[in-house]
Design a protein around this nucleic acid. Structure first.
Length: 387
DNA sequence: AATGCGGGGTG
DNA sequence: CACCCAGCATT
């Protein structure tokens, strides 16, 4: 960051005067009492201020001091927290209150390290209390500050990674007002929620417009950089291993559209999670399994093994079911077509007229299928050794 | 570094 | 419905 001292000074003034005119009228902004700031900050974690306000008022009425909180009835405290979520916050509050009473003689610690040591207080909350209640120049880095800062300087670091925190800390430590650090932090929080919002930032109304690199280049929406935290959807399949008398496996070609288009796969059928869990637990083959249309009649099914495969957006849980045909049988060519075939493990096997048979190394296999072949390989080798 | 933990709002 | 949000403790 190459801003001059004068520039930083003007930046602080522009931000703070905006805050003085536009700050949200929150009940805990009428005080700097550490106890009240602490409670408000804990309640505000991952929670909208509008949701927090009634809880805050009730909390302060019931537990007006840190001593009353330290002696709170667990059930009553939890009851008061009911509906706010993240209930360990309430449990930790009481533990921390007891710590303050026992270790600090009931006086809330006034330095960052001691504040940070309290149960339930992490880097963000510690800095918020330190700056608001004790005037310490500690940047309280939350999602808002990271968003605003990443736009100001077009920072490309991924805010979802914990290692990015120190980068934001570096910038904000240079920018923070030493005279009004608490207001500085809260100003950036309000700015982040009122003006510098994630989807539709109101740059024309922003007091920091002239300082903002992203606004200058029109790339506001490119920031902050955040890797999508995709919750993969769990899907459950049975994968059928049907082997013929030549040691080949029956594969099908997937549809030409969608996931793993045109790749080859063992026949798959989806099944409910509960059935899957039961099968891999006790080896019982679910009665609900839908057996795919196969070229031979099946006499028995046997659970072999299970494995998983992660896609970007899906997690496949597969259970291998070995299908055991009646005695021996030959390849029924007339039942095969362009999207169904028998595939051998290797390419050295020849057909009757001397042509190499189709091997698994010649066709595009979906990721899970490669894993499945490996598992089947191992099983077969194990069986060979036993012979 | 990754995961679990609630609930409400938004587009 | 998918994504977002004033985080922290635990592993």
């Amino acid at each position: 960051m190459d801003w001059s001292k004068n520039q930083i000074k003007e930046f602080q003034q522009d931000l703070l005067s905006w805050y003085d005119d536009n700050k949200k009228p929150l009940p805990w902004r009428k005080t700097t009492e550490p106890y009240k700031i602490w409670i408000s900050e804990i309640m505000s974690q991952q929670t909208q201020v509008e949701t927090v306000m009634p809880y805050y008022e009730r909390f302060m009425k019931k537990y007006p001091t840190i001593e009353t909180l330290a002696q709170a009835d667990d059930a009553e405290l939890l009851k008061l927290w009911e509906g706010l979520g993240y209930y360990s916050r309430a449990r930790n509050l009481k533990i921390a209150a007891q710590e303050v009473v026992d270790k600090y003689n009931g006086k809330f610690p006034d330095n960052l390290a001691d504040i940070l040591s309290l149960k339930g207080i992490g880097p963000y909350t510690a800095a918020a209390i330190a700056s608001i209640s004790f005037g310490l120049a500690e940047p309280a880095i939350d999602g808002n500050l990271m968003r605003v800062t990443s736009r100001l300087f077009e920072l490309d670091c991924d805010i979802s990674k914990s290692s990015s925190r120190k980068i934001f800390d570096g910038y904000l430590r240079k920018l923070i007002s030493k005279k009004r650090p608490g207001d500085f932090n809260q100003a950036l929080m309000d700015l982040g929620s009122l003006v510098c919002s994630p989807k539709s930032p109101k740059c024309e109304a922003c007091p920091l417009l002239n300082y903002c690199a992203a606004a200058a280049s029109g790339k506001q929406l490119n920031y902050p950089v955040k890797t999508k935290k995709i919750k993969q959807k769990d899907l459950y399949f049975t994968a059928f291993a049907l082997e013929n008398s030549l040691g080949e496996y029956y594969l099908e070609k997937r549809p030409s559209k969608g996931l793993l288009a045109d790749m080859w796969t063992f026949p798959l059928t989806e099944l409910p999670a509960a059935d899957f869990e039961k099968m891999i637990t006790d080896g019982s083959v679910s009665k609900n399994i839908v057996i795919p249309e196969l070229p031979e009649s099946i006499s028995k099914m046997e659970y072999i093994a299970n494995f998983t495969h992660i896609f970007s957006h899906q997690k496949w849980n597969l259970a291998i079911i070995k299908l055991k045909p009646e005695e021996t049988f030959e390849v029924a060519d007339e039942l095969l077509s362009e999207d169904k075939m028998w595939v051998h493990f290797d390419s050295k096997v020849l057909t009757e007229n001397g042509q190499p048979k189709v091997s698994r190394s010649q066709i595009p296999l979906a990721g899970p299928q490669v894993k499945m072949f490996e598992i089947l390989d191992k099983k077969n080798k194990k069986i060979d050794l036993l012979k």
